[in-house]
């Protein structure tokens, strides 16, 4: 009984440490795709560009509205 308790505590501590390390890794991970999307949104506004229409130049009036993925 005592033995079982003593071996469980370090195991729990190890599990906790692993979980914490995992959390830290997730929290500092740089969201590259989201950053690219943010950059493109801002560049569109600063350079007053529209995203290039798929399949070559399209009449400005016919160009589809700017896509926004929720």
């Amino acid at each position: 009984m005592t033995h079982a308790r003593m071996s469980l505590t370090p195991l729990a501590a190890l599990a906790l440490a692993t979980a914490l390390a995992g959390c830290v890794t997730i929290n500092i991970y740089f969201p590259a795709a989201a950053a690219e999307k943010a950059a493109d949104t801002i560049i569109d506004e600063v350079w007053q560009m529209k995203p290039p229409p798929p399949g070559g130049p399209v009449d400005a009036a016919k160009a589809p509205a700017k896509e926004k993925t929720p």
Binding site: A19, L20, G22, C23, I26, N27, P31, A34, A38
Partner: peptide, 16 residues
């Protein structure tokens, strides 16, 4: 811990 992980994941996968 679970809540923290969730927030971290949301920040990592959502928009900036």
């Amino acid at each position: 811990l679970a809540a923290w992980m969730y927030v971290g994941l949301a920040a990592a996968q959502g928009d900036l």
